[in-house]
Design a protein around this nucleic acid. Sequence first.
DNA 1: GCGCTACTATCTGACAGTAAGATAAACTGA
DNA 2: TCAGTTTATCTTACTGTCAGATAGTAGCGC
Lengths: 341, 341
Amino acid sequence: MAVNSVRELARRLGLSHTTVSDALRDSPRVKKATKEQVLKAAREFGYHYNPLAGALMSQMRRGSVETFRGDIAVVDLEGAKMRPEVFARFHKEVLQGAERAARKMGFKVEFFALGSEGISVDRLNSILISRGIRGILILPAGSSPDLSVLQWDHFSGVYTDYIIEHPAIDSVCSNHYRSMFLVMNRLARMGYRRPGLVMHKAHDERIMHRWEAAFRIYHEYHTGFTNIAPLMLEELNEADFKRWFHDTKPDVVLCHRNRVLRWMLELGAKVPETHGFCCLNVKMSPVPVAGLDLLPSMIGERAMEHLNSLIYTNRCGIPEMASTTTIPSVWVDGPTLRQVG
Amino acid sequence: MAVNSVRELARRLGLSHTTVSDALRDSPRVKKATKEQVLKAAREFGYHYNPLAGALMSQMRRGSVETFRGDIAVVDLEGAKMRPEVFARFHKEVLQGAERAARKMGFKVEFFALGSEGISVDRLNSILISRGIRGILILPAGSSPDLSVLQWDHFSGVYTDYIIEHPAIDSVCSNHYRSMFLVMNRLARMGYRRPGLVMHKAHDERIMHRWEAAFRIYHEYHTGFTNIAPLMLEELNEADFKRWFHDTKPDVVLCHRNRVLRWMLELGAKVPETHGFCCLNVKMSPVPVAGLDLLPSMIGERAMEHLNSLIYTNRCGIPEMASTTTIPSVWVDGPTLRQVG
DNA sequence: GCGCTACTATCTGACAGTAAGATAAACTGA
DNA sequence: TCAGTTTATCTTACTGTCAGATAGTAGCGC
């Protein structure tokens, strides 16, 4: 009974489907009287607009004219030389994931590096505007320069690390809290009893101490682990670590950096025979280790998808409330852990 | 020079566009040799799949011709009568936010209630398929029936509460962990010194103890608060609360339920004169209280937007990795707190 | 009154990927 | 040999949009 398409509606009115389409979208091409007649008929016949078809067509038509449908800028806040080597692989995979997703959605990616070797924020702003770029994806970075000077009302933006405050835009990152539970469950199953957490203070502070908080609360609700106070250091250093290791006697060490593994070996630990080492981000290790894969490429991918949806729905500028999308991580077996006992 | 439609690709191969389309989706209708030939050509010519067109067409062709609609199902797992009164408002606002967002994007929403008063999961499955519905938004619920029996390869789904496991689909919810930091910072600024946390065990367990973990870790990195052990109860009960309140002497109580406020008054506390009460979800309180607005309508809105983007990019089924999108909460002043000292 | 321009209102056609059903060719079995 | 089945491919219809085509009218000059 109900009319399901502009064509059918047009047939009943003796008009062409385009006139009806234009009328429904209040185009100035259509005479006012015709518009009213179309709107009335649409109501009467219970016509229901199909948003998917509309989106498809407007995308197609726009795209065919401009050849490229608005590029997306991928911004590296630091430049490769400033970044410590250990972060390079993680960083690169975020970028690759983002590029893959962009390609799939028909976007072209342009890469910009800020920082000492790169361009300034002011320069970036004018480049982006002059090229008509509407989407900005920001790669993870240790430091966070103030990007609030960019004219955000022109852009949609997504950050690929834990929430950024200047400005507070939507972000996509690992689910650190949940990941710690995943690690602890695994270690428990493997038979470890004295897990010890070692971390850069600054590293955990950026994510509101989620690693440490999850580590601590886990002990409250799971028996079988001996509670060893985490070692949180301003700088990861040999002396403090070795003292802690000697005093607390962990049977497995959780850490991002695998220099800690070297120090363990120097203290006479056999890995994995007598002690375990669990890396909290295996993409930071140049050698095979057991631990967490934080899925950087998936982070990049999802960030790009989110950016696409922001652009698509025309939501630019600083959001009223910045959301954080978190991606679970997966366990990776490796030579630094074994089944105990 | 890139080929960007199945038709153009088909022309170059001397095939019909449907054969190419079928081949690209690995349909058994197409001969293996032809498939390989098509895939090779697609790679060579740089063919780009258009997910929006795919989503549109599969939606259109599926279901009966008459009932084709771009509709979205909003599913209440429990039914209103089963839900405790205190959750009603929060629940309703999630729904309203979702409906508002759907309207804005041109989708029509159909509402389904499961549970004792409602339909069964099996029935839901067949209704959704027969109506050609492709998007499912699941409202927050205390219990979580097993939805993995739905034929998810036909649907895109988003859950509006903390991660759901059967099945693990993308979810949108409050950032509980961050919210606790917001609360603690506020209370510190107001001059409180002895915050005490009271909570249903089951409530916090569902979100992996995030409230408690954040509460505990906050004390580690912020001086000025006296550390009072949280009261985690199987059931919120007067006796346990009053004993805990008497023993630990908090000057401000953090809790979801405001029956606790009544118990405090019964014990002789004057609120806000001698003691403070901070509600962790003001939408659960029938009377004005200070505390957190978890922004349920924004949760519904963002969930619907995410669902929309899943449908547009034709991503249905259980995702490989389920993401969790978290929304910050905002502080609400109220008559149960005051500036101290 | 004819041709020209300018403008308005409406129409034509192409476009995306899908799926049901049609067609055609090859093969099977009595 | 021919009816029946299987396999591979094709035809057709479907959504809303937009650039460009077309048709109709009006105004103006000669």
